[in-house]
């Protein structure tokens, strides 16, 4: 419990540190009048067509979805990992291996299907 309090205090300290710097630099630095051109989004000199919120390709959110699903499957592996040794020592290794085997099998099937269906290809 106390470590949580320590964590929170640390986060507060970090935030304060960050904000202090941001405010500090803006306070310290010179504040010239910002010309319109300067304020334009920097496009390495090329004056791009003003299309601020260009729409992203579908691929990105697809990766995010797949990331969530596979991340959860990995999260499920963690508790299994730490208790695997105890189960093996107490003789139930095979049971645990079997249970997890099925789970990993599904994980692999999902992954293979993803690869095969070229969902992850960035063309």
């Amino acid at each position: 419990m106390s470590s949580l309090l320590a964590l929170l205090i640390f986060v507060a300290f970090l935030a304060a540190f960050g904000i202090f710097i941001i405010v500090g630099t803006s306070a310290l630095g010179p504040k010239p009048e910002v010309s319109k051109a300067k304020a334009m989004p920097y496009e390495s000199g090329v004056v791009g067509t003003e299309q601020k919120d260009s729409r992203m390709s579908v691929k990105f959110y697809l990766t995010a979805i797949l990331f969530i699903l596979f991340d959860i499957e990995i999260i499920f592996m963690y508790p299994w990992a730490i208790t695997f040794m105890d189960f093996v020592k107490s003789g139930q290794g095979m049971y645990m291996l079997g249970g997890m085997g099925v789970f990993v099998l599904l994980f692999v099937v999902g992954l293979i299907w993803e690869v095969k269906s070229k969902a992850l290809d960035w063309n």
Partner: peptide, 20 residues
């Protein structure tokens, strides 16, 4: 439930890809 969750995640993965 653990195995069911595994199957569910597989289905969701396939579903999401086909939806997209």
């Amino acid at each position: 439930a653990f195995e069911a969750i595994g199957a569910l995640l597989l289905i969701i993965a396939v579903g999401a890809v086909t939806l997209s």
